[in-house]
Each structure stands twice: as C-alpha cells, then as structure tokens.
C-alpha cells in the first residue's frame, strides 16, 4: 500500500503532525500500538477528540498495529515499513515521521549496555555505562531523561551515521542535546 505520509506512533506529536499535514492537503496514515499519547487513564484526556479530528480530515488511524521494521534504499531513504498485523503487505510513503516516544512507550529501549531505537536501529545519543545513566539522587536531573535519537537540524535521524532524508523524528523520541 502507498500513502503520501506515514506516521509511526499515535500520540500527541503524531496527531498534531497528522492534522497539520492533512490541513495542508497531504494524505496520512498513523500506526499506533495502542491508544497513543498517555500511559494512564485520564478522563480529562482528549486523545479521542484529536483522533476524531484527524479522521474527519481524511486521515487513517490504525490502532493496535505495531510497526516492526522497514527497508532503506541505497541512498539511505526509508522506502517502506512492515507492521505486525499486515503480514507480508508493506507500506510505502514519500515521507515518514517517527513519533514513538521515549522509554515508557518503548520508542527507546534501554539494554544493559546500550540504549536503542527498536524499530529501525536509529543512532541514539547516549554514553557511559549503565551506572552513569542514572543519578543515585532520585530528585536530581537524570541523565537518561536526555537520551534520544540523534537528528540533524531538520529532525532527520541518523542510521549508522547516515542521515535518513525522508524520515523525521518528532516528540520525545528526540534527545534534547542537554546531556552533560
């Protein structure tokens, strides 16, 4: 299947970007593992209204489907993605956004010796050993909170040091560059 734009992750950054794109006349599909944008039930939460607006504008929100990987072409562009539910069917797009969030939503995963981005293996800005990621003073600024995928100025992430030109990282998956 082909779409103009595909957004991976379905939280606030994804819906804001999606609505903005649709208003600019683009087409857009969002894939979200679950109801995106929050981790605890909150009756005041307006995700549903944003999703409705996104769908009203013609966007397609696929909930309950996780993007599992993708294919990069020779020039480092992302050509298509695969998901858990679509089987052998792959999804092509001109442009992709990754908005899978930080550790809690598994946009970033901390292993014993590295912090990784699990879908594409994008380069992540972290350093030091496990012990250095955490400040033992609970209330202190925690180094791991500043980790994220490395991007250029326009938000395009790197994979093995090469920029992925048609992929943009948005939201808390991005590092904030303030790491000590």
């Amino acid at each position: 299947m082909r779409s103009d734009v595909i957004i991976i992750g379905g939280g606030h950054s994804a819906l804001c970007k999606g609505i903005e794109l649709l208003k600019a006349g683009r087409g857009c599909i969002i894939f979200s593992t679950g109801e995106g944008g929050h981790r605890f039930r909150d009756p005041s939460y307006s995700h549903l209204n944003h999703r409705k607006e996104f769908e009203r504008l013609g966007g397609v929100y696929v909930m309950g489907d996780t993007v599992t990987g993708g294919q990069f072409d020779g020039s480092g562009r992302l050509s298509f993605i695969r998901t858990a539910a679509q089987g052998k069917t792959v999804f092509y797009a001109q442009e992709f956004f990754i908005a899978t969030g930080s550790f809690f939503s598994r946009g970033l995963v901390a292993l014993r010796d590295a912090v990784v981005e699990p879908i594409f293996g994008l380069d992540v800005d972290f350093s030091g050993t496990y012990e250095e990621w955490v400040n033992p003073d609970f209330y202190a600024d925690q180094p791991f909170m500043h980790f994220g995928v490395i991007t250029d100025e326009e938000g395009h992430p790197l994979k093995n040091g090469v920029k992925v030109g048609n992929l943009t990282a948005i939201g808390s998956i991005k590092g904030d560059g303030k790491r000590q």
Binding site: T33, G34, E35, G36, R39, M63, G64, T66, S105
Partner: peptide, 8 residues
Amino acid sequence: CEVSCPSD
C-alpha cells in the same frame, strides 16, 4: 481492549 493496549 487489545487494540487499545499500549503494551500489547
């Protein structure tokens, strides 16, 4: 419920 669960 499964569709909405962020932890699959």
